[in-house]
Nucleic acid binder design. Structure first.
Lengths: 159, 159
DNA sequence: AGTGAAACCTATACAGG
DNA sequence: CCTGTATAGGTTTCACT
């Protein structure tokens, strides 16, 4: 999956730039955009998928319509720091569908979690009935997002 | 764009569940999955797009291949808290391509930023030459991600 | 709101430079 | 690694239910 790869050329990089923003574009139109006919364009995309540069295609939904209009970040400290406990926590976090992101960080706390929940269910419920059911949580601190200035997946593709 | 909408029915919700995970699926196959022929399936998807439930389709790229293998969260406090200063900060953050997310939060600091940068360029450069060039930053605190346990866009679609 | 069929466009495979 | 062509498959429109 992660075969050794030579450098991405200019055309590859343009393909990636377009697909990051228009994930459903046809290979015919994508080819026109990057100056290629359909055949080699499709082949390049398949190769980028095979090599793991493109990891998938996703529709994005507006949380407003899905009872998930409250965005919260939670900093979590675990009570003990053995490998087993981290592993147990990891697995539990993966199973919570409201948790969009979970990262092990270095610094004042252990995990940073990003979750989307409904305003109604009030975020105390997330904390009380889900996040704090995560194993070995010693302490948590949460931050409610007042305004989402920017949220993208698009990585800058270097020249 | 955000027309008033009646509830999403069971088929709509299944369409959304599939498209969140397989953004390039054909409408023919999507129809089969949700028990519909191609025509009404396409029409429902177009309607969900028009109404703003589906906001776009995106390819996801592996940061490893794009010199962006270091993930960092930065908490930022502004020096003054007038509306102009928030607006100025907002606009500057939007222009930085390495900043994937920027949120105004309530709590101990003002903005939480998520950025991806190269390990080489070391993250001091992000801080020194980009983030701290953001206007009116009084203080910042950053957290380097050691392990990405989970990172998804997929929202749970309620029944 | 749905089906099914026809016309059109896109994708895939393959011959050739 | 590209172009061009043929065939298969997907999309769009429309008449009908």
């Amino acid at each position: 999956m992660n075969s050794r790869r030579r450098e991405l050329d200019k055309i590859d990089r343009n393909i990636l730039r377009v697909l990051q923003e228009e994930g459903r574009i046809s290979f015919t139109e994508l080819g026109e955009r990057v100056g290629l006919s359909t055949t080699p364009c499709t082949e390049r995309v398949r190769r980028l998928e095979r090599e793991g540069v493109i990891t998938g295609y996703y529709a994005r939904l507006d949380p407003q319509f899905l009872k998930a209009n409250l965005l919260v970040f939670v900093e979590i400290s675990l009570s003990y720091k053995s490998g087993d406990i981290f592993e147990e926590f990891r697995r539990a976090a993966l199973r919570l569908p409201n948790v969009l992101e979970c990262h092990l960080v270095s610094g004042d706390f252990d995990y940073l979690i990003k979750a989307r929940i409904s305003e109604m269910a009030s975020y105390r419920k997330l904390l009380g009935s889900t996040l704090l059911t995560l194993p070995h949580v010693r302490e948590s601190k949460s931050y409610i997002v007042m305004e989402e200035v920017k949220e993208t997946l698009s990585l800058p593709v270097p020249d």
